[in-house]
Design a protein around this nucleic acid. Sequence first.
RNA 1: AGGCGGAUAGCUCAAUUGGGAGAGCGCUGCUUUUACAAGGCAGAGGUCACAGGUUCGAUCCCUGUUCCGCCUACCA
Length: 717
Amino acid sequence: MGTPQLDKTYDPKAVEARWSQVWSQQGYFHASPTHPGQPYCIVIPPPNVTGSLHVGHALNHSIQDILIRWRRMQGRNVLWLPGTDHAGIATQNVVEKQLMAEGASRESLGRERFIERVWQWKATSGNTIVSQQKQLGESCDWDRLRFTMDDGLSKAVLEVFVRLYEDGLIYRGERLINWCPRCQTALSDIEVEHEDVKGKLYHIRYPLADDPHTALIVATTRPETMLGDTAVAVHPDDPRYHHLIGRKVCLPLTTREIPIVGDAILVDLEFGTGAVKITPAHDFNDFEAGERHKLQRLQIFDHHALIDAAKLQDASVDREIIEALRGLPVTKARPKVEALLRERDALVKVEDHKMALGKCYRCKTVVEPYLSPQWFVKIQPLADPAIKAVEDGRIRIIPEGWTNNYLGWMRDIKDWCISRQIWWGHRIPAWYCESCNAGRFKRFIETGESKTASTRLIVAPDATPIVAKSAPTRCPDCGGHNFLQDEDVLDTWFSSALWPFSTLGWPEHTPELKAYYPTSTLVTGLDILFFWVARMIMLGLKFMGDVPFREVYIHALVRDAEGQKMSKSKGNVIDPLHVMGQFGTDALRFTLASMASPGRDIKLAEDRIEGYRNFANKIWNAARFSLMNLDGPRTAAAPSERTFPDRWILSRLNQTIQLVTSELEAYRFDRAANALYHFIWHEYCDWYLELIKPTLQHSASPDGPGTRQTLVETLET
RNA sequence: AGGCGGAUAGCUCAAUUGGGAGAGCGCUGCUUUUACAAGGCAGAGGUCACAGGUUCGAUCCCUGUUCCGCCUACCA
């Protein structure tokens, strides 16, 4: 090669584009199970197809890329497997918004056409994030790109669902679940975000049925649900009230009499008045108390969280009260009930009280406890082995501190509600024989936000489902041929829980599965430890008989200026692509790596990125200087014959390599980055290059620079 | 309510097992001598949140306090 004249300053755009092309043309990132070397595999946490790359991805992916390229340099058989997630509710919301802008709606299209529309949307703009990932220089094996709803993965979902059902680990039942009245679907416990709000504690007089002059004062934060009360509880050891157990009180605003029960679990002697109303259909504690005392569940809100007048009628509510409350949402029903109680002199007092309000993690709407038939995974039998795997070190969580977090949650885990009343997702493979279940179906017209309608099928909780990988043709019980399929789809996280083996070809026995499972490392943020990591461990152990990964590295969260979590719906996302355009991709990636120290969240400062842009430029110019001085003879002298600066820099180089290696082994990307920075800038450039300038006219040194260039370029990018 | 983490230079953040406190950006002065002014050299700037304790010695270990953040939670 002659003497190419490099530009005086580093131009990331041109250089990045060139290298990116070389990489993909040469197929450097393509993995094969037959390649030599010990396998090293990372499956990427699949970003939502709706998404575009945000700084959190940039951090998460940069860390993985560092590990991947580092292991590749060590000669391991490396696979970095990319993909995207169908993100049920989130994606459905995005497409629904588009429809709304066109004056259409999900309901007006109907299920089939709506799903087609989502696929269409996915085809046109769903891969935005993938091209952005490529722009970030991620060295994934792009030939193996997967999607949680592609054929192979859907097959895996079916297989898992049916087997779990056959093992008795999936069941259907009517339970109180978290319901988002806007998304019109059930949510799992962890899909609810809690927020402290200022509320009030209402003290309400419930007169005794046989002695109207005496009353039990009940304290509640939700007076609007009282019309669904089916009992009042006191503590069995409470000297004030225990003699009342077994008697009845009149429920204000109604003609109903409800029993007083003793319940030591529900009632806290210290709190409020010591008397608690029990509303089994609208409160989780009360639901359980209702189970204990075999109480009726009276639902007074409908699926839009509006007062259901018809149900109030069944519940013996006074006629004028029904008219006053008809169709009111919770927020309006509460002050209305308060006023009605006041009119009747049933309200003793109201005091301030802070309480936690549950909100939908996708749309921030206030979630209501709602009684409905849903599908659940019986989780305890899956959780136990998943706890053991972490306890005995088969899976190591880094930083270690999160281990207790994981264990604590797993030990107290509750059954997982996996059915969602939306359209976009894996439809539950359950069918109901029409003749066997006659009378157990209910269809109702559903009005969406656009006032156009579609029908929804509700199947009674006591119906008998047939769970199979494909639609049954003949009912095993009655020989009938007509079936209705369950309309629910699965929680998005159900398919992502299979990700480490479904992407490798399971349930087929593929060479990939054999070579790369268990995968090596999982890199993720803390926010999806329970959503995703815990469930992968449970299902990996269940279906592969081995852990899905050996190490879990949990990195910091990138926050915005106010320390808030960045999220698409909040619109406070910093665009990494913009930053990359301004300072270069390597500058961004190096910045993120250098800030990835454990135990602290990252607040991204632009000045910092600029500093590392300068660093990239420094490297560029070191290379430029070297090329300008490469003319002339080069000899690889024996160590003893090398000049002092040469020997010194080579020894420093080797120490740096060792240091960086050990830091990477410890997942200390910040320290690895700093070691590189210090060596390259302050030792190699400041001292070595300056020292050899006088001798460069002659011969001795210049193969040192060559080795160093390659080291730098590959290690950090 | 419980659990965890943080508090270090003007700003964003480091500091390997207890011993001299660092980087980037910003700031001051000098420097345009052919790798790089996105550079080089020199420098200012810190009661390491607060109060105790252990120790020959504490930013680091222990106790308590204050402030901030996060996670979990059914106190009606």
